[in-house]
Simulated assay, not measured.
Amino acid sequence: MRSIITSLFIILLTLGRAAAQSDTLSITLENVPYPYAVIHLPLTIEGQDVRMAYMDVKPATPNGRTVMLFHGKNFGGYYWGDVIRPLVAKGYRVIVPDQIGFGRSSKPFIHYSLHKMAAMNKHLLDTLGISRALVLGHSMGGMLATRFALMYPQSVEKLLLEDPIGLEDYRTFVPYRSAEQDYPTELKTSFESVKKYYQSSYFTKWEPRYDQLVKIGAGVAQSADFPRYAKVAALTFEMIYEQPVCYEFGLLKVPTVLFIGKEDKTIVGKALLTDEQKAQHGQYKVLGPQTAKKIPQCRLIEFEGCGHIPHIEIPDVFMKALLANL
């Protein structure tokens, strides 16, 4: 009898540990479901062999056009599912890379650069035999998409920017912090800290379904490799701060559509600001129209009552607007 009780205790203990560990994520998100199969492109960067993850989703009845999706800093390809499916249904081939340092891609210690990222994505398109694409970038992906269009205008059929960051120069009002200084802050990542940030910046009203995004953002903090993840997060924060694109919007030579959630209040480095400074910056209802005037051939589409991620907060409304502007 005692042996049976002991065995049951061991089984329950094992199950309990497994349940606790289920919230721990690999820093390359292998245990996070992606909407489609993930492929890896081998690259060598600064002498390091790395792998760039991406999804290549092909329609049953192709229309001959391709859409490339660039994710934001706190996300990866996993959050594009509700955008990919309608696009594929309309005949578009959809390429969804996880940038190096993000998602299921490698997390090397390198000099992170929007120029370097743009070149890697151009290499991905070349490898796949794709000469031109509609490029949709969200948040940090919007900064990257802008840089990509500036570097490779011949490869961009249309530039689509969904609440891009970098509409203002953060260097002019956010105190400078190097990657080394930011690293200890990144190490403090928790479910509570991520949820607080998402609530204050990303969504107008919190819904339970957003908790899954928080779990992914915070789940890596329990990994033994989290210090590497945190260091890369600090390096990419430094990249965003030091490499603005807002002064180059007037140089864009491709048709552009700017999608803006009018309640978006995202600021990179927001925690370093006073409440008064927060009220003066990150106001997308003001930044959107200002930016649209800077960009030649730009169409501005604004969403009432929506924050930083329209494709998640108001997916049907966003997709209707996106499909109408392809």
Rank of each mutant, 00 (worst) to 15 (best):
E238Y: 04
Q243M: 06
Y229H: 12
P227H: 06
I240V: 15
D225I: 01
P244W: 09
Y229C: 02
Q212G: 00
L213T: 05
A221S: 15
Q222I: 00
V220T: 14
A218D: 08
F249L: 04
S223P: 04
T236C: 06
V245R: 06
E248T: 06
P244I: 03
Q222K: 15
R228A: 10
V214N: 03
F226A: 00
I216K: 02
A224E: 11
F237V: 02
R228F: 02
P227V: 11
E238P: 13
Q243E: 15
I240D: 03
Q222P: 00
Y210D: 02
A218R: 10
A234D: 09
C246Y: 13
A218C: 06
V232C: 04
T236E: 11
A224P: 03
S223Q: 07
V245H: 08
K215E: 10
G217M: 04
G217Y: 03
V245F: 07
I216Y: 03
V214E: 03
L235F: 12
L235S: 08
K215N: 13
Y247R: 15
Y210K: 06
P227T: 08
C246G: 02
C246E: 13
Y229S: 04
Q212C: 00
D225N: 08
M239D: 08
F237P: 00
T236F: 11
Q212N: 05
K215R: 13
A234L: 07
E238F: 01
Q243I: 00
L213Y: 10
R228H: 06
Y210P: 06
S223N: 15
Q222Y: 15
R228D: 05
G219H: 05
T236A: 05
S223F: 09
F226D: 01
A218F: 03
E242A: 11
R228W: 02
E248I: 07
Q243A: 04
M239S: 11
L235D: 13
E242N: 15
F237K: 13
A218K: 09
V220C: 08
V220Q: 12
